[in-house]
Design a protein around this nucleic acid. Sequence first.
DNA 1: GATGAATGAGCCTTCATTCAT
DNA 2: CATGAATGAAGGCTCATTCAT
Lengths: 216, 216, 216, 216
Amino acid sequence: MNIGKVQQSAVMLFARQGFAATGIRELGAAAGINSATIYHYTGSKEELLVQVMRGCLDAMIASGSAALRISAEPTVQLAALVSAHVGFTATNPLTARVAEYEMRALSPENRSAMQKLRDDYESLFAQVVERGIRVGDFSADDATMARLALMEMGTGVAHWYRPDGRLTLAEVQRNFVAMACKILSADSAMLSGIDFIRPPMHLASEPPGAPLATAR
Amino acid sequence: MNIGKVQQSAVMLFARQGFAATGIRELGAAAGINSATIYHYTGSKEELLVQVMRGCLDAMIASGSAALRISAEPTVQLAALVSAHVGFTATNPLTARVAEYEMRALSPENRSAMQKLRDDYESLFAQVVERGIRVGDFSADDATMARLALMEMGTGVAHWYRPDGRLTLAEVQRNFVAMACKILSADSAMLSGIDFIRPPMHLASEPPGAPLATAR
Amino acid sequence: MNIGKVQQSAVMLFARQGFAATGIRELGAAAGINSATIYHYTGSKEELLVQVMRGCLDAMIASGSAALRISAEPTVQLAALVSAHVGFTATNPLTARVAEYEMRALSPENRSAMQKLRDDYESLFAQVVERGIRVGDFSADDATMARLALMEMGTGVAHWYRPDGRLTLAEVQRNFVAMACKILSADSAMLSGIDFIRPPMHLASEPPGAPLATAR
Amino acid sequence: MNIGKVQQSAVMLFARQGFAATGIRELGAAAGINSATIYHYTGSKEELLVQVMRGCLDAMIASGSAALRISAEPTVQLAALVSAHVGFTATNPLTARVAEYEMRALSPENRSAMQKLRDDYESLFAQVVERGIRVGDFSADDATMARLALMEMGTGVAHWYRPDGRLTLAEVQRNFVAMACKILSADSAMLSGIDFIRPPMHLASEPPGAPLATAR
DNA sequence: GATGAATGAGCCTTCATTCAT
DNA sequence: CATGAATGAAGGCTCATTCAT
């Protein structure tokens, strides 16, 4: 028994029912241990959630930052960032969902700490979009709205993507990159021959097996 | 005192903290009545949620269906549908959020009933996109993904739109129509001179005052 | 059902087993109500204890202050104070015991508030003893020790006095007054013909029926 | 590490917070060992308390019995017994307090065993008082009450005596002897020239350092 | 001798709901 | 219409204790 198993059980239940609707006894049962034993691995139910969220957000920031380092070209950076975002979300759909939905379940202190991480991540998108517009590679009626639409779109992948679905992950990633280029009127020809896709990382907190949704 | 006030209080708290984390006493306090009195307006906490969700989904279906009746032209239908979606979501952000997030809080019977309504609403988008592709007005690598991205994008408006923000609702709607046209490679010139925006309806369950987010 | 019954049950159990060893379910059972109902009468287990203690200490201070007002003569004041102390303790043995023993069970804020009340009460004894020594009516090797011994002695009554015991309350009170005079070398002849005994007050929190001890 | 350290930690915490409010983990932390290790030194939390109490009561009985053997004179016996009692209580205040307060925490079997020891100890006082009255050396309105007052008074020393306080232990002891003589109208002149004070024993369970109270 | 992991029972408290008033 | 009182069930968490290492 280790903390990974507990985290996986927690993520599965939190994603399915929500943090508030999931009991400690339920968590224990899902992890195959007594509910009291959970307190050997974590100080409280909330701390368990914080650990999961921090792991997720740290990984997202790391993966997004790495994407920006692939090239100095805004269009390539956009493609790499969108690919990384979609790849991460599709690979860790439940953890990503928990990290997005359950911010509100946190105490004020924890919430502001986690919100800071999320803001850091979102600013990666803002940087790329703004610079692309500034140097004339992108164009958009409203940069902020375009960025928000972009992220929301990619995050939505967690709701429906399945490894055994109709499309491979790489296909989905390329598709989203294409849509992102369209939204920002970027020249997708600049991407030909460039390998901007990095293998997404798998979080320890992501439970194995089928995600929430039915295949599409 | 009427049921509208109770619903508004419920939506405000459910949107902020989630259904499971909101107590009956808390609902009563927010509505200015004793918690026991809530049971004069509804049979149970879950039924209160169902009433709110049904009101929201019914209105979305009505507004989306009306949008499709504006024209037979796929591009105009798309614009009208996206406008209606964005308009509704921006006008009733908290109710829309509750209707989206709290499906999981329902008992199986209620959940399937509500899910059916949501599926009906989503099929409006599917119809338009598919017909537009079939007749050659739209093009997309993957119709399903394009549709999902479209909806997710529009739903995201609930997270950040504010009436007192930088952009008017009409501006936001036109912006999203433009992005939708880009994603589907639709000819937005076909929309010139056509008034596809209908005034969005305000739900009784939507609490007055500021939404969740800070202005963008 | 009223709060008096709950307080009586609490005092009975706290006196017998201690605050920490008494459960909320036990309290409810002793009061004949569901344990959850206790929270209609008080905010927490500790608050219940605080209410009991405050009621006791307030009454002790009132009774002690009244005793000092009977006369300006130190010896009469001493007799009245000792009588009041013994009378109160014998009449409310369980409540008095709880107020004495369970100070340590309180949170720091509540403890300091209660300790202040107790200090106020003890200072009544200190005043009398000091003034009696100053004007030459009393003599003692050490005033502080004499006062402490005096109080401890009287408080001990709670451990063994029983209404159905060998001695009446008035007899016990006179006996303790005699011992107090001896300790302080006061002239008990000064008390002849003076009625320094006031009827002790019965606290609402004191449970009816037999006290803790066996008769002596 | 030895059982003495464990007992000292236990006495310190039991005296400060009570037996029921002290956890095994807390005991371990105070003794500098893992909570499970405590079970190498004792069979259970209650047994730990019993060991402490038995050690205390045995020592009190031994010290009281030795005092009675100093002389056949009731007044000298009284002085020796009171001195021993005060000396023991002042030297082992925390252990004495635990032995007095926590009788109620014991299971019925252990409680009756410990109560028997305490009764044995109290009977030492009863013997002396009764014989002194019988032979005419003492006089009291009520022998039982005088004895109880005597003991309670002496026990109270644990609440306030401090080695670094205003008075030396010998002074306190002489003071209490004087008060005892007054209460029983004994002729303290009979004590002149007689050394009735024996050095008090220090229990292994008594934690070093400052006692509970502030100096007086 | 010492400990980290583990657990069933129990802790205090809050829950959604009912009902007499 | 409205509420205060009441409750069984469940909430998160801590308890004393055991045991393999």
